[in-house]
Design a protein around this nucleic acid. Sequence first.
DNA 1: CATCTGACACAGA
DNA 2: GTCTGTGCCAGAT
Length: 106
Amino acid sequence: MDNDSFQMRALNLLLQIPKGRVTTYQELAHAMGTRAYRAVGTAMAKNQFLGKYPCYKVVKSSGEVGQYAGETWKKIELLRDEGLEIRDGKIVDFKKVLFRADEFKV
DNA sequence: CATCTGACACAGA
DNA sequence: GTCTGTGCCAGAT
C-alpha cells in the first residue's frame, strides 16, 4: 500500500496535522516510533509530493521554518496561509501551534 | 559490505 | 539568546 516505506509513513502522518498547526522532524519521527529525524527530512527532500502531502508543515524543533525544496520563502508563505505568524524565519508562538507526537492518531 | 549525504537535534562554549 | 562541533537514521552510491 502507501504505507510500506519509511518515507510514506512520514508523509501519511502529515495528513493528520490540523490547519494552523505544525510539527517538527523530531516529533514526527517520534510519532513513528523512531529517532530518525534526519531520515525524515532526507525522505521529504528526495520526494516531495507537493500538493498531495503538506510537507511544509514540518519545521525544526527550534521553531525555525527550515528548508523547503530550495525555496524557503515559499514554505513560509504556505504557513502564513495556514494562519501562522512568522517572524524573521521563525514561527511566533511556536509551542502553541506545535502538533506533538502524542497528538498523532494511534 | 563500506562510505557519504542530508528539508535535523543536541551539547558545549 | 547565539555559534560551532558532533551524533543520529535511512537511503543512495
